[in-house]
Structures are given as C-alpha cells and as structure tokens.
Design a protein around this nucleic acid. Sequence first.
DNA 1: TGAATATATGAGCAATCGTTCATATGATTA
DNA 2: TAATCATATGAACGATTGCTCATATATTCA
Lengths: 124, 124
Amino acid sequence: MEEKTDNPKKVLHKDKTISVLNTMPSNNTIEELAQFFKIISDTTRIKILYTISKRKLCVIDIASAISMSQSAVSHQLKNLKISRIVKCEKIGKQVYYSLNDKHVEKLFSISLIHIEEGKSGRRK
Amino acid sequence: MEEKTDNPKKVLHKDKTISVLNTMPSNNTIEELAQFFKIISDTTRIKILYTISKRKLCVIDIASAISMSQSAVSHQLKNLKISRIVKCEKIGKQVYYSLNDKHVEKLFSISLIHIEEGKSGRRK
DNA sequence: TGAATATATGAGCAATCGTTCATATGATTA
DNA sequence: TAATCATATGAACGATTGCTCATATATTCA
C-alpha cells in the first residue's frame, strides 16, 4: 500500500528530482494532509462548518439552516468529529456542535482569496 | 441541483440559525471552495505539488520523483491545470510544470500545523 | 412507565474518482 | 521521411463517497 506501480522508466534531470525529495513530507504525512483536505472538500460539510463557526448549534438547527436532512447532517457531523474538526457537547436531548479547529476558518479565507484571484485572472 | 431535499421539519432556535446565514457564502462560492479543496485532497496531486514547488519540472521527472506512471501523473496534471493551481510551459518535446498559486503552499503549512496539533492532543 | 423528541447508525444505491492500458498527438533527430 | 521520445487522452474498472430510508438509542416529560 506504500508505493503503487514501481515504474521508474527514465529520468531526464536526475539531479533536480533528487533534491526535490528533501522537502517532501513522509508518505504518512501526505496521507494525513489528503485526508484533512478531503474532509473539507464537501459542500454539505463546508456549510456545516460555516453554520457553527459563530456559535454552537444542535443538529436539527444545523440541518434546518442548510436545508439538509437530519440524517445527512448527522452522518457528516460524525465524519467531522472523527477528524477532530468539530467537537460536541450533550445538553439534555440535544447535542451541540462547534468548531474544534481554529485553522479551518483561516483555510477558508485564504482559499476564497485564491478563488477570487482566479476569477479576475480569467477575464477575457 | 441547488437545494437538495427541502426538509425543514423543526427548528429549535430560529433566531440563531437565521443570523448564521449572513456569514454563509453563496452556494456558488461554497461549490468553488469544495472544488478547490477536492483538488488538493489526493495524495498523488499533493506529491506533484510538493515536487514542483521548488522548480519547474517536466512530466516524466515528476512521475519518476513520486514513483507514479507517466499516464497517472499526466491525468492529474491536467486536473491541476484546469483548477489553475499549476501552469505549464512547453519547451521542445517537454512540458514543464510549476506552481501557479502562492496560496497552496500556505495551505499545506497551516494544515500541517493542524495535523501536528491533533497528534499532540490525542496522546493518552 | 409510555409517548415524544433529538440524535445516531446500518444498509443500499447512484455518482464520482483515480488508476491502468492502449493509443493518439506533437516534436525532435537520424 | 521514419523512428523515437514526451505528453495527452479515452475507455474501463474497482474503490470510495454521500445520500435516503428505516430503525436504534437516549433523554425528557406527562
């Protein structure tokens, strides 16, 4: 599961490619990076994160705010919780969810800048 | 394709959920955010981005550096190019790819911090 | 205790994704 | 021009994902 096809074939610039490997994180770290971006790459989860970014909310309020079913939201909250991006707190019958990671909002704002720049650069 | 199931059911705290909607980006923007995170949520693409982060490289050098087939890398470079995260420059037979987005490296470093913090918080 | 409410979860299904394989395209060189 | 090299691409296939539906669990309240 480490390396896929061992397919070295040819290298045009061996010296360059070797030096690149020094800055490359370990396979394990790359896998964690990918996993983290995957969790914030779904529109439902992004909406959930925005919804609870200001204050903690219970599941049906989140579902109502983003017009998704309770079940769908609950499933995604579970994923977000496993990834330690949200935390929850049970009060009576309700479970209140809130952000557990101060980095997510920063990632969103940086990425929105990226998106906006892409738009202005794409004008014809 | 805009709203999925229109399933309002009940709202426990209507005042809270309404105020949340003010900070929520448009559906279109959310979709673009999701698309952007999706493109950097694959290990092959992350490795490619790290590989070309220092200097531009041609396809087979990238493939060699990350031990993936030329075809797989070429397919993913196409995706990265469509998303405007990399740019390319043809010189003779080779096509040299490089980063087109200064934000990606920042996202990686912030995310690595998130991952590291997660690890230290998880100790028992 | 029983009904109602809030949340969680398993199964199933359609859609998306990333790879391989085969081959096409485009550029250089003998 | 023919052979070779670098890259791109379409089809196919397996794996993953996110939803719905039905139902389980847990808490409150009458």
